[in-house]
Simulated scan of single mutants.
Amino acid sequence: MLIYICRRLAAMLPILLIVSIVIFFFIHLIPGDPARIVAGPDASVQDVENTRAKLGLDQPLYVQFANFFINALQGNFGVSFRTQEPVHTMIVERFSATLELTMYSMVWAICAGLLFGVIAATHRGKWQDRLAMIAAITGISMPSFWLGILLVELFAVQLGWLPSGGSGSFQHVILPAITLGSGVAAVIARFTRTSLLESLREDYVRTARAKGAREAVVVWSHALRNGLIPVVTMTGLQFGFLLGGSVVVEAVFSWPGMGRLLIDAVNFRDYPVIQAELLLFALEFMLINLFVDILYATLNPQIRLVR
């Protein structure tokens, strides 16, 4: 297991290099001149050129990329064009807020998704199944920004039960967590239903029933455990999606996380911040995939990771 983990970690380096190249050159295709934005709209041509040289944007692109990648390997992502703060400091300050929102969203999505999926599978073809799947399709289809606006209108404006935005208390995280996790909950519900239906047809389930086990024990202790294997894989990938996909939700609810930071960086053409955040999102996905593989083998000891 340890050898497998070390090999997977080593294999991440060339992947990160490729991702870094794509991120770097695509960012430089964004219209707009960061030097002009930093220097100000009234700056002279000479001031803009001096600013460009100060920011290192006058160097060839391959030199800029080499400097960025080498420094990134050392944990140094440079200085923000906008605030002149170290990028890693800005990310650390915002990451905890995004992680908090993601964790609440994931807990809600897993609980709701598993519950709806189990109800749908154990009541196949009945009204409970249809209702659960209608809710799942609605959750997948509805854009997060639209769902967020509806929740704000209902629970913040009309009822006044919850704040419409900001952070600082558990009440502030409820609406953005529901908004962010609804799509994931719907996907988990559909995967759980399909996987559980297959498990309920297996011989070991019939054996457990023949021995007189209660239906709840058969479903939750026998069938669901094996049925969770593909669900775990999908859930792990969805967790990475939540971490990187909270941009719109954070904007709707004014949540002070990495999503808001990324939007501000794009608007200001703050290359160091954009590059660092996108590279961090890519690394998160790779680490989550590794964790999912390990958890996959833990849930089913018959599965052996390739060393």
Results as ranks from 00 to 15, higher is better:
114 L>G: 00
114 L>Y: 01
116 F>Q: 00
116 F>T: 00
118 V>T: 05
120 A>Q: 00
120 A>K: 00
124 R>Y: 05
124 R>F: 06
125 G>H: 03
125 G>Y: 01
125 G>F: 04
126 K>E: 03
129 D>M: 08
129 D>K: 08
130 R>M: 04
131 L>A: 15
132 A>T: 09
133 M>Q: 13
135 A>K: 02
135 A>W: 09
136 A>L: 02
136 A>Q: 02
136 A>H: 04
137 I>K: 06
141 S>M: 11
143 P>I: 13
143 P>A: 14
143 P>M: 12
144 S>L: 09
144 S>Y: 08
146 W>E: 01
146 W>V: 14
148 G>V: 11
149 I>L: 15
150 L>G: 12
150 L>R: 07
151 L>A: 13
151 L>S: 13
151 L>M: 15
152 V>I: 15
152 V>S: 05
155 F>R: 06
155 F>H: 11
156 A>M: 13
156 A>N: 13
156 A>S: 15
159 L>S: 12
160 G>A: 12
161 W>T: 13
162 L>N: 10
162 L>G: 10
163 P>E: 11
165 G>S: 15
166 G>K: 03
166 G>Q: 02
166 G>N: 03
166 G>R: 02
168 G>H: 06
169 S>M: 08
170 F>M: 14
172 H>V: 04
172 H>G: 05
175 L>I: 09
176 P>H: 02
177 A>V: 12
177 A>K: 01
177 A>L: 13
178 I>C: 11
178 I>Q: 05
179 T>K: 03
179 T>N: 05
180 L>D: 01
180 L>G: 04
183 G>A: 04
183 G>V: 07
184 V>R: 02
185 A>C: 11
186 A>T: 04
186 A>W: 02
188 I>Q: 08
188 I>E: 08
188 I>D: 11
189 A>G: 01
189 A>I: 07
190 R>F: 06
191 F>D: 00
192 T>I: 12
192 T>G: 02
193 R>V: 03
197 L>K: 00
197 L>Q: 08
197 L>P: 05
200 L>H: 09
203 D>I: 06
204 Y>Q: 03
204 Y>D: 01
205 V>Q: 06
205 V>E: 07
207 T>D: 07
208 A>W: 04
209 R>F: 07
211 K>D: 02
213 A>P: 00
213 A>C: 11
214 R>I: 00
214 R>F: 10
215 E>R: 09
215 E>S: 12
